[in-house]
Amino acid sequence: MDSKYCSSCGSQIKKEAEICPECGVRQKPAKKEKSSGLAVFLSLVMPGLGQIYNGQILKGFGVFLSEAFLLAFVLLLLFGGANATAFLIIILLISIYLYSLYDAHSIARKINLS
């Protein structure tokens, strides 16, 4: 189908129309939908990548850098023999990772609903 409805008057207009011929109101450009499944998959591959896909670039880099920093810290603790402290940091790593998955999914859904 190559028609849509005017966002102002509800008249049926061509899909490519930028201005409604009936009421003269400029139409909003069609938004690009985000796949929540792809957002989750990207966050599975690399934490923060799902946020970047959703357009939250700073949040995505923040998640990625915090995961990278904490992982390096855990490795240093494990090589230093501080296993109990490393275990607590690993729990934090897993929590941030799971948050990244949940956030990527929920933000993609919010983008599609708005």
Rank of each mutant, 00 (worst) to 15 (best):
E16P: 00
V25C: 08
L93T: 02
S35N: 15
F61H: 04
A30H: 08
G37I: 05
Y5T: 12
G62D: 05
E18A: 08
V63C: 04
N83I: 15
V74M: 12
V25P: 01
G80P: 10
D2W: 05
L113W: 01
F69P: 00
S7A: 14
Y5C: 01
K4Q: 09
G81E: 01
P21G: 10
P47A: 13
S35W: 13
M46L: 15
C9F: 08
Q56G: 02
L78T: 12
P29K: 07
S114N: 12
A68E: 01
Y5F: 15
L92G: 06
E18M: 10
A72F: 13
I111F: 07
F73D: 10
F87S: 14
I96K: 03
K31L: 10
F41C: 07
E33D: 14
I90E: 04
E18N: 11
F87I: 12
H105V: 00
A30G: 03
L70Q: 06
A104R: 00
C9K: 05
S95L: 15
G62M: 03
K15S: 13
G62Q: 03
S106L: 03
S114P: 00
L93V: 04
Y99M: 13
S43D: 02
I91M: 10
K32Q: 15
K59D: 01
Q27L: 09
N54P: 06
R109D: 09
S43M: 03
L98G: 00
F41V: 14
S106Q: 13
R26N: 06
E18H: 08
F79K: 09
L58G: 04
K34D: 01
F79S: 08
L71I: 06
Q56E: 15
I94W: 12
S7E: 14
I96N: 06
I19M: 11
G10M: 12
S36Y: 12
F69W: 13
G55M: 07
Y53M: 11
G80C: 09
S36D: 07
N112F: 03
V25S: 14
S35F: 13
L44N: 04
G60Q: 11
K32I: 13
I111Y: 09
M46K: 02
M46C: 15
Q27Y: 09
L113M: 11
K110R: 12
I111E: 04
L78V: 13
M1Y: 07
G62Y: 03
M1Q: 05
P21C: 11
I57C: 00
L77W: 02
A39R: 01
L76V: 15
V74D: 01
K14M: 04
E33I: 07
I19H: 06
I13C: 10
K59C: 00
E16S: 15
E16Y: 07
A108R: 03
S35K: 14
N54T: 07
A30T: 10
